[in-house]
Write a protein that binds this DNA or RNA. Sequence first.
DNA 1: AAATTATTTAAGCAAAGACTTAAATTAATG
DNA 2: CATTAATTTAAGTCTTTGCTTAAATAATTT
Lengths: 122, 122
Amino acid sequence: MKETNCIRKEADVDQIRRCITRISEVEEAVDTLTDKLSLVSNATRLKILFVLQTEERLCVCDLSDILNMTIPAVSQHLRKLKDRDFVKSEKEGQTIFYSLRNDHRELLAPFFNLIKHQPEAI
Amino acid sequence: MKETNCIRKEADVDQIRRCITRISEVEEAVDTLTDKLSLVSNATRLKILFVLQTEERLCVCDLSDILNMTIPAVSQHLRKLKDRDFVKSEKEGQTIFYSLRNDHRELLAPFFNLIKHQPEAI
DNA sequence: AAATTATTTAAGCAAAGACTTAAATTAATG
DNA sequence: CATTAATTTAAGTCTTTGCTTAAATAATTT
């Protein structure tokens, strides 16, 4: 890649430098955030999180019935949510119950509000 | 798919029904939200939005320099952001300046806060 | 008018995502 | 102890995404 694309005379070099600096400062935070958002930006996973908000805990086959999806499909979503600390699991006999973790409540709260208070369109 | 996966005796049929109802009520809101989140959950696009927050407006080649990416790559991200009303564009001669729209400020605000106030880890 | 500049559009490709079905694991039960 | 049940893991497929390079548009300058 070329070093510079903006060769127009009006180009504000200081502005560009300033932006580069500003972005480099938040680069890591952006990556961390987008990593989490990419999890939440899936309808199935957001539904799982949403319903776990009120239900305390649900097992895989509960969720499979609720979401009308196959068990393995649900299980794979749950693994992702668990890997990123959105949910935790507890085994009880042969069934495994999933529940919300507190780790990302702050991130999730605005979404749940949007969903609940503007059900038709956001 | 089978109608029911949960055949265990402890299965709480009422709970499952309740969840199905609750989810059906927010289905549309969830889709609308995840559609927007999937846009924001990309590091390049979040950076564009972040930097446009303070810079008022930037042209495509500015952003290409700032993000160290090719012009077409940036242009394609901008199109997505524009299609979903995150940004607007104004032509001035042969350069096209992009700036933030107000439509999704409410959705974006928490992200910008997270990025700015916890730069190391969220 | 020809050449240059800024941007978009298009086509192609590689990687990531989300499902499917089948097999493996683990626990409970007859 | 063999069977059933709940879940995970794995492998395969299809779609989506994000880039690349090349070509097309459109405005400016020479």
